[in-house]
């Protein structure tokens, strides 16, 4: 059984390594993700549009604000789920 698991794991890892040959090199400035117009636009325009220096915060709280609201809901729901599971007897 463990041999089977090891085989499955090695198969998955080998497949990923084979597919990973096409990925851009580490630190490559010409990678498609960096050359995408969306990335360039975020880096150039986010300060004028949102007024904050940190691009990650600008993306997180402004452009993807709705997603982050869902994120906060996820962590809130996780807390409530743990309370429901473990705090059954006292309220």
């Amino acid at each position: 059984m463990k041999i089977l698991a090891l085989f499955a794991v090695l198969l998955a890892g080998g497949m990923l390594l084979y597919a990973g040959q096409d990925l851009p090199a580490f630190g490559d400035q010409n990678s498609p993700a960096y050359q995408h117009p969306m990335t360039t636009r975020f880096i150039e325009e986010s300060e004028n549009e949102t007024g904050v220096y940190n691009i990650v915060t600008a993306l997180l709280a402004n452009y993807r604000g709705y997603d982050t609201l869902g994120e906060t809901t996820v962590i809130f729901t996780a807390g409530m789920a743990v309370i429901l599971l473990l705090r059954r007897r006292e309220l």
């Binding site: 600008a58 906060t72 962590i75």
Partner: peptide, 19 residues
């Protein structure tokens, strides 16, 4: 843009309290 920055701070504080 200034308004957006202030309101984003409010949002961050909200996230922080929940977390």
């Amino acid at each position: 843009a200034e308004t957006a920055a202030i309101l984003m701070d409010v949002v961050e504080v909200g996230i922080g309290i929940t977390v």
